[in-house]
Amino acid sequence: MNIVACVKQVPDTEAQIKVKPDGSGIEEGGIKWVMNPYDEFGVEEALRLKEKNGGEVTIVTVGPARAMETIRTALAMGADKGIHICDPTFDGADAYATASALAAAIKGIPHDIIFCGQRAIDDDSGQVGAVLAEFLGIPQVTVITKLEFAGGAIKAIRPIEGAQLLIECPLPCLVTAQKGLNEPRYASLPGIMKAKKKPVDVKDAAALGVTVTANAKVAKFIPPPARAAGKIICGDDPAMKAAELARLLREEAKVI
């Protein structure tokens, strides 16, 4: 089975995000970079599929030089090889451009199933998986929490508002991983050693024959609106404080 897992390097969830004074982006100094948590679920599921059915897992990323660490992390978990799409023209690329690059790279290799995270926790766009599936002309099942493979098709659980869907889809297809799909493994020390020798192909936009455009572009980054200081309800008696809270929510905030 030929399995592809797309990953992205993102700031850790504990990172404080500061907007540059000119609004052109975020300050990257001091940020700890990690594999997007949703992509980790995808890599883990890819490895489990391979362990059960045989085959190979290829990791693909679009990102600057530092994103190589994320490929190595996935290789250390057990993936076989990597493709690093690295080109300064991809800075600020939108989902369309990123998916174009991924599609160009993945078209060149056999692919039965492709994993993406359901969204990256930096831009929170949640688009790349679906756009990539469209470019490859394959069906998608997004935001899944369970996956089974049998008889050339997958069955996946997709939670929606107030229900869960059981969806069947033939291969080749693309799925996007949601928390709950699995518990990603940690890289072992021998895994980390082996990862250093696994092949990673580095490609730029020209090598892939893609030009980068941004159909949708973040023209300006802005800090979140500040919330006015809140009221702390003081007193010694829990019942009185609770009553005051109820009164404020009813009469002042008008939300109950």
Binding site: D94, A95, Y96, A99, D124, S125, G126, Q127, V128, G129, A130, V131, L132, A133, E134, F135, Q140, T142, V143, R158, P159, I160, E161, A214, N215, A216, K217
Partner: peptide
């Protein structure tokens, strides 16, 4: 930006060759 809208809008970005601001 519901589960259905997120799934559909992203696929349409590819089909319509355009850009999308999510959520």
């Amino acid at each position: 930006a519901s589960t259905q809208g997120k799934d559909l809008s992203a696929r349409l970005v590819g089909k319509l060759a355009t850009g999308l601001a999510t959520d």
